[in-house]
Write a protein that binds this DNA or RNA. Sequence first.
RNA 1: GCCGGGGUAGCUCAACGGUAGAGCAAUCGCUUCGUAAGCGAUAGGUUGUGGGUUCGAAUCCCAUCCCCGGCUCCA
Length: 596
Amino acid sequence: MNVAAKAEKESAKQSLDALRHSCAHVMAQAVQELFPGTKITIGPAIDSGFYYDFESPHRFTEEDFPAIEKRMRQIAEGNHPFIGKEVTPEESRRYWGSRGEPYKIEILDGLKGQTITHYTHGTFTDLCRGGHCENTRAIRHFKLLSVAGAYWRGDEKNPMLQRIYGTAWPTKQELDVYLKMLDEAKARDHRKLGTALDLFSIQELAGPGLIFWHPKGARMRLIMEDWLKAEALRRGYELVSTPHIANVELWNTSGHRSFYKENMFSEIEVEKADYQLKPMNCPFHILIYKNRLRSYRDLPMRLAELGTVYRYERSGVLHGLMRVRGFTQDDAHIFCAPEQIEGEVDGCVDFALEVFKTFGFDKYVMEVSTWDEATPADYSGEAADWQRAQAALESVLSKRGIDYTLIKGEAAFYGPKIDVKLIDAIGRPWQLSTVQFDFNLPQKFGLEYVAADGSRQRPLMVHRALYGSIERFFGILIEHYAGNFPLWLSPVQVKILSLTDAQVPAAQALAGRLARAGLRAALDVRPEKINAKIRDAQLEKIPYMVILGPRDVAANVLSIRLRDGRQFQGVAEESLVNTLAREQDIKQTAPSWEDA
RNA sequence: GCCGGGGUAGCUCAACGGUAGAGCAAUCGCUUCGUAAGCGAUAGGUUGUGGGUUCGAAUCCCAUCCCCGGCUCCA
């Protein structure tokens, strides 16, 4: 993206934020008028709209929205300009004191030495640093969406406030598009589709956050795993396999018992020793590295594993496949010499891009998180290593011409990283792949290799996950494709529907031949009408249907129906098999059949 | 974990102090049909769990588990 385009995008975002922030003020006014005793706190613009947090004796529900929206509309139509005014801290304090707004006074207390401004529209004034549209008149296309609890200043030690979320757009069309996207997202919800398509479940009796993969989901998982393993081997990784629990001494050594304790399951005592379920695979791969003396000739050593980890997540944060307590990471750790890091990072990025392309994602954003020199807090490792690693991360992306955002101070304490967010079919970002340096664990475990000159050196370590977690990636795939998976991932690729009982033997024979050709075929020979069988197959989102009636059998041809409704008659069996085998082989995301 | 909203048949939902119901799915018949639901019958529930109030509880109260929307965190 060039500089001018970036600037234009930035300015468009600013005016959108101004509209939304202004809408939040108007909502706050409406709410205070309609629900006396409500205290205001903060109300910013966010990615897709705005919110305002209130403390109120009234419990807000969605049933209150029509009344609030109606009042908002009246206020907006009142044609009030937003007027900013600089005030002294004393003035401001007096104003908020007189209005009985303790949260505003608390904010004021945090603004020592800064310029204080009040923004007023009509009869409503807010303590606010600004960023408003000119006039309430601009606020026309908005909708309140939900109400939720939120801690004052995001701290769970503070009181719980009530947050009302809304969205606002410059035009009706944009608002409608956004609302439609929300509906679309709801329809694609992987929890809903997971049940409808019988892919997975979460069982109350077994516990929250633990995933049961049903036959169809497990089939897809197998395909994802097989592809990834083959690709890893092709790229010079070694596949390893490690235990699910380990003695607490391992976690003491790695440091996880101190900095990751809240997320680990409790100890399991066995013969007077304590064990813990693994929340991460890193220490295990490190032990494999450390198991014998390594030479510089052994490097880079790339150890990969589909490693299942267990993390204690607080009950309120669990979410379908996206946030669970037991999941499998496609984890790898690369141990290398300093001069190899750029090549290794490039290999990881290349692999990640291959994953996106293969699974049908063409949009993504990358972020490089580095340390912040200004606040050299508790970073682990040598400054020279950090600088070299950060340079490698940026250099790899630049050389590939990949646009990225540099986020200073966002690095973990143990090293800088690249994070990749995928953009799905309806424009939502999902945090996926990550490539992270780790300067902490090699030190904690005293990792070494013998250099060419015979000296002992510390290897550099890179963590890397591409799917992130198989569960989560699966959830993203479900939502990205809305359950309409490409042929190569579809648990059932072809379903053969018999028109009458007379075609059952032919249907069975065809199913056998398709299976032998490496295709996943299913049969529907129930004594149902063809319309009913088609409907069921459509609801199962099966990519190809073969409808077998007396005419087809007589002519020795097939009638094909695609998931998108298109039909092709008189297709030779060989042609179907070859076309599908190829579509599967090259992992095509679109169906092969062209309208004749 | 916290705030709010919910758990009724495999699924989607109704009944909201007075004997628990529908559609789909399932099972059994009949129907043999040409591109999104053929007809009929049967079966299916100590209403998440435990306690309480009441002559009577799916419905009211308490506790607890799970789910949903958020907060916080994150793969």
